[in-house]
Simulated assay, not measured.
Amino acid sequence: MESEDDDWELCYDDGFVYKRKRRRLNPPEPVNSSEPDSEKLRKERKKRTLLKLKSKYEKEILQWENLSNTLRSLQISSSPQLQQQQQQQHQTLSLPSTSSSTQSNLLDDLLSQVEAQEGIIHDIFNLCDVAEAMCFKQEQLFKQSLFDLPIWSTPHELMQALCYDD
């Protein structure tokens, strides 16, 4: 018969020392295929909880990816406009005296650039509103999870929750 110390081994991983069960080439035979009902229920509950958590995180990741893609597309669409603006500003500085028609064309170009920038700023504000709404919803869900704790119910229900761990 093996001693208790033979079942455990010390591991050293980059300065972190911990104890783990010794790995064996031949795993021990299962003692009983029938687990106690409480153990099965606990495993099922744990599995359901983990699946819910996984789906929640997947939804949140999708939302953040959508926001990221939208912002990236805004950056891509605004970069040619910014380059065009810089070129036109450089041209206006290099031409000290121009005719009135050229000046009016230049003014029209500058106004259209400002309008394009206004649209970009509006889109970014919309993205910020969406991100803020997501954060607010997450905060509300967190608050609700705290309010749903059994400690806020009657003492009898609290004792049931602590004893039975549904």
Rank of each mutant, 00 (worst) to 15 (best):
P36L: 11
K59V: 04
Q63R: 05
P96K: 10
Q63F: 01
K52S: 13
D109C: 05
E35R: 12
P36M: 07
S3I: 07
M1R: 12
V114F: 06
P155A: 01
E35C: 13
I76V: 03
F16N: 09
E118H: 11
N66L: 03
A116P: 01
P155Q: 05
E35S: 13
L67R: 07
P96I: 07
L106C: 04
L10V: 04
D148E: 04
E139G: 00
N69K: 02
F125M: 05
K56W: 02
Q81V: 13
S79G: 06
Q81A: 15
N126V: 11
K56H: 08
E157P: 08
K137V: 14
D13E: 08
C163Y: 04
K54Y: 13
L51T: 11
S153E: 07
I120A: 04
S33E: 06
T98K: 10
K46D: 11
N66C: 03
L95N: 15
H156R: 13
L95G: 09
E65P: 00
Y57M: 15
Q75V: 10
I121Q: 07
C11F: 07
P36A: 13
N26Q: 05
L67A: 09
E58K: 13
F16R: 00
I120M: 07
S68A: 09
Q84Y: 07
C11G: 06
Q103S: 10
D14R: 14
L51Y: 14
T154L: 09
E118W: 05
D5Q: 02
S112D: 15
S79Q: 13
F16S: 06
F136E: 14
E132K: 11
E65S: 04
S79V: 04
L50E: 05
R72Y: 11
D7Y: 07
T102D: 01
A161N: 12
R45V: 01
D129Y: 12
D5M: 01
Q103V: 04
L25A: 06
T102N: 03
Q89G: 00
